[in-house]
Amino acid sequence: MSRPVGAPDADGFTVPGRGRGLLDVVERRYLLKLLVRKELRVRYQGSLLGLLWSYVKPAVQFGVFFFALGVFLEQNKAIQDYAVYLFSGIVVINFFSESFGNATRAVTGNAALVKKIYLPRELFPVASAWVAAVHFLPQLVILLLGTVVSGWRPTVWQLLAGVLGFVVVATLATGLGLFFGSINVLFRDFENIVDLMLLVVTWTSPVLYTWDTVQRAVPGWLWQVYQLNPVTSGVELFHYAFWFGATRPGAGPAATLPPNLLWHGALALAVALVVLVVGQLTFRRLEGRFAQEL
């Protein structure tokens, strides 16, 4: 009589190489913590600044964008509290870029572990997303300090919007990381493809400019598609949570938000969940070839 896949055998052991995907990651949280610590330790080994690079990189990035667009192109005159607007978008894009980019390289970067022992391979891209979240926290602290100085007085809905924006982007990055990370084991060109995608996402998301700039430039149907992009929704939800709550009437150009923001955020979460399911299914289908391909 055949035994179901993943079921224990007569001795109480589970058939090796068979798992339940992301559910195994939840059950093996201790392994996830070990992988996150290992990635952080390896990344900053021999570094003088260590985790302080989480502050330096976004600070330089913010300075370049602020002076190039805010001062030289005078976006700070067109958008009230442009510094808060800009940085609240940057922290989202940085988190997405690091999560997605590192998750794509997670399996190939842990080739030695994949070939030597069995453990849920989803742990590697998920651990990369957790490392990105560790780097996200210092940037969020800076954002909070900046918004408080600007007069941030958030409502409950704005706080919930910020949480929703983070969940949307984290879910999307994990799903894409699973999808492209599994394919990257077979075709290493996908690392370069993902780098190009991240470049496009940075400049097509409403981080450096406002949503109505896009609305005026594209047809109506394309604008709706643009709004359903989970990264776009994540950025705008952060704008609603941290920038909109800090703007002051009469202090500059009126702050406006895209219509039906929370509704589009819910739809974006649904899209991100679909991407997560597709990424998990693709990962499960290809993971049996990881060891031999690596």
Rank of each mutant, 00 (worst) to 15 (best):
Y55E: 04
M197A: 15
D212R: 08
A254R: 12
G162P: 03
H264R: 13
L35F: 14
G50T: 04
M1I: 04
D81W: 06
S97N: 11
T204W: 00
W203K: 02
Y30L: 11
R37D: 07
V235E: 01
L22A: 12
L198D: 02
R41S: 15
Q80L: 10
I117A: 12
L208H: 09
A272T: 04
L145H: 09
R105E: 15
I142N: 06
G279A: 05
G288K: 03
Q224A: 13
H239I: 09
R28G: 00
S54C: 12
H264Q: 15
V167L: 00
F244T: 01
V71W: 13
E293P: 05
N184V: 03
A268K: 06
L273D: 13
V200L: 13
K38G: 04
L49W: 10
F179A: 13
F242I: 09
T210N: 07
M197T: 10
P58L: 05
T204S: 10
S2A: 11
P125V: 07
A268W: 00
L261S: 06
W211C: 07
A59T: 10
Q61V: 09
F13G: 14
G109N: 03
G234I: 05
R121Y: 15
A246W: 00
A255E: 14
F136C: 03
V42I: 11
P138D: 07
D195N: 11
T210K: 12
A251E: 13
G234C: 03
R37N: 06
A161F: 02
M197R: 03
L267Y: 08
G279K: 13
G245C: 06
T155Q: 10
A173W: 00
G17E: 12
A266L: 14
W130L: 09
W263V: 11
L196Q: 08
L199F: 14
V201G: 01
T174M: 14
L273P: 11
L137H: 06
V235I: 10
W130F: 11
Q75I: 00
L119A: 03
V84D: 02
A78H: 09
R20H: 15
V225G: 14
Q139C: 09
T247P: 13
Y55W: 13
E236N: 13
L262H: 09
L257R: 11
W157M: 08
E236W: 09
V71R: 07
W152F: 10
F96R: 01
S150G: 03
R37Q: 15
V168M: 00
G245P: 12
V271I: 15
W243T: 06
G50I: 00
L86G: 05
R153Y: 02
D24Y: 01
F66M: 03
G252A: 08
L208I: 14
A68P: 09
L199Q: 11
T171A: 00
G101C: 01
S54F: 09
S54K: 04
Y44I: 08
L160G: 14
R216T: 08
A251Y: 10
T282G: 06
G63N: 11
G162R: 05
S205Q: 02
V42S: 13
L286S: 02
V36L: 12
I90G: 14
V42F: 07
G165Q: 02
N229T: 07
V274Q: 05
G21N: 02
A127Y: 05
A133C: 10
W157H: 15
Q61N: 02
